[in-house]
């Protein structure tokens, strides 16, 4: 997938935030967070902004587009 992310690292840096806690803040299931974190699913723009907001960082600090 062309979209990569830093969610795992950001969770670690935010007091080892659990996937469930992040899922609840974003309003998706834990399985969806797992899929995003493993680059198996590219979230919607809204969910991407919510994830960035959960870590209090700009969007580009969480997601990056990898040219193929």
């Amino acid at each position: 997938m062309a979209i990569e992310n830093e969610i795992r690292r950001l969770r670690f840096e935010n007091g080892e935030m659990t996937q469930q806690a992040l899922a609840e803040r974003v309003g998706v299931t834990r399985q969806t967070i797992i899929a995003i974190e493993q680059n198996k699913y590219a979230p919607s723009l809204e969910a991407a902004f919510k994830i960035a907001d959960a870590f209090s960082v700009p969007l580009e600090s969480v997601f990056r587009w990898k040219k193929s």
Binding site: G27, V28, T29, Q31, T32, A35, Y41, P43, S44, A47
Partner: peptide, 11 residues
């Protein structure tokens, strides 16, 4: 809890 939650965007 999961049963009552609406489907998220991936689902």
């Amino acid at each position: 809890k999961e049963a009552n939650a609406p489907a998220d965007e991936r689902e």
